[in-house]
């Protein structure tokens, strides 16, 4: 059976709808305004927001969650601003990424970000070299983040439970 023969409501689209940011997905009527507004889709065939919404509505969970396409949204919000059905497309894609990461599909860059947050509370590591440069420029020193507090936040939000592919970030 092809996707088109299935119902547009699926277990996967319900899962998305019930998560923060995914609420509006079912309003989509596939007009394609998003795809024609998308600066990424303009330069590559690998990414098409309309297709992502369609496959999600049709329940192609594995294809979306394990695939590469959701990571190509540049989150410019052009599609979302122009959508006549007020589908919050960029927010839906963030929701899809959250699901993908939960399932272990984590691009290396997010492994690196996660390490930065876990170790220093920021994504750019503090370095002695950079601190010295700041001093030379007459800029005030940057105080470290409060890691005791941050560790508690990482625990509370279940971030600590996410399985990142350690070691592949470098």
């Amino acid at each position: 059976m092809t996707y088109e023969e299935k119902s547009v409501s699926s277990k996967f689209s319900d899962e998305i709808r019930h998560r923060l940011g995914g609420e509006t997905i079912a309003f989509c009527y596939q007009c394609g305004t998003c795809a024609s507004s998308c600066p990424v889709a303009k330069v590559t065939d690998k990414y098409n927001p309309r297709e992502i919404i369609k496959l999600s509505l049709l329940g192609a969970r594995k294809e979306i969650v394990a695939g590469d396409t959701i990571w190509l949204c540049c989150s410019c919000y052009n599609c979302q601003e122009r959508c006549p059905q007020e589908v919050e497309i960029a927010d839906v894609i963030y929701t899809l990424r959250n699901i993908a990461i939960q399932e272990g599909n984590v691009p290396d860059i997010y492994v690196a970000f996660a390490e930065g947050i876990s170790n220093e509370g920021r994504i750019v590591p503090v370095s002695k070299f950079a601190e010295k440069k700041r001093e030379e420029y007459g800029l005030p020193p940057i105080k470290p983040a409060n890691m005791d507090a941050l560790r508690k936040i990482l625990q509370a939000t279940s971030f600590s439970k996410i399985q990142f592919k350690k070691g592949e970030a470098q």
Binding site: R19, L20, G21, W71, Y94, T95, R97, N98, I101, V106, Y110, F113, A114, I117, I123, I153, L154, T157, S158, F159, I162
Partner: peptide, 9 residues
């Protein structure tokens, strides 16, 4: 940068 990873975080 964490919005893609975990919205609550």
């Amino acid at each position: 940068p964490m919005d893609s990873v975990n919205h609550d975080l």
